[in-house]
Amino acid sequence: MSWILENLDTIGELTLVHLALSLPAVVIAFLVSIPLAWIANRIRVLREPLLTGTGLLYAVPSLPLFILLPALVGTSVRDPLNVVIALSIFGLALMVRSAAEALDAVTDDVQTSATAIGFSRVGRFFAVELSLAGPALLAGVRVVCVSSISLVSVSAVLGVNSLGSLFTDGFARDIIGSILAGIVMTVVLALICDLLLVLAGRLLMPWNKNAATVRPRLRKRRTQEAAA
């Protein structure tokens, strides 16, 4: 335990580095998955090849990918960019199918009515389809976020610093505190990010029934006050 207390600074710093590697990957995976999902839904022949194809990317073993990327992208072996790119690919593998399904689930009724009242195609996509797919998209992003945060750790093997470095160092130097700190911080970080995503979802999508659980409670309190 004393190791942890003595190295709080290092743990804090590695946590931030860990975040800096995983969050961009989540954002990239999300942004790239939306147009791909749109194409998959729009051009039906491409749907299965696209969804299965991107899904298969997840089957690429992570370590060889980390090693191959520098050769493909032209980065140096220890460039953090490799990690971000690899994680974006894994995130994309998870996200494209959920995004395509989320967008596909927006009912025809709403789309017809949006067209009928004068939304243009593009306007309808952003104002109606994307918003209504929100809750399902959020569910996909949560999975990608947690999975990216845990996957980043692998980068330590390549010498790119992250919370994973706490295990590799811990194992190499036989420091239990370091290993523990690495595991606990990764889990805590994933949980906090997930919680923040849920909160953001409630703020951005107050219309969503699953998020609107506050209402009955409020009403109950009000009736109790009225009774008293």
Partner: peptide, 20 residues
Amino acid sequence: VALRRRIGYVMQHSGLLPHR
């Protein structure tokens, strides 16, 4: 699109946008 914006349209199940 311009035509639709000057014609009112009401449908079954109201067709309201649930997120607005």
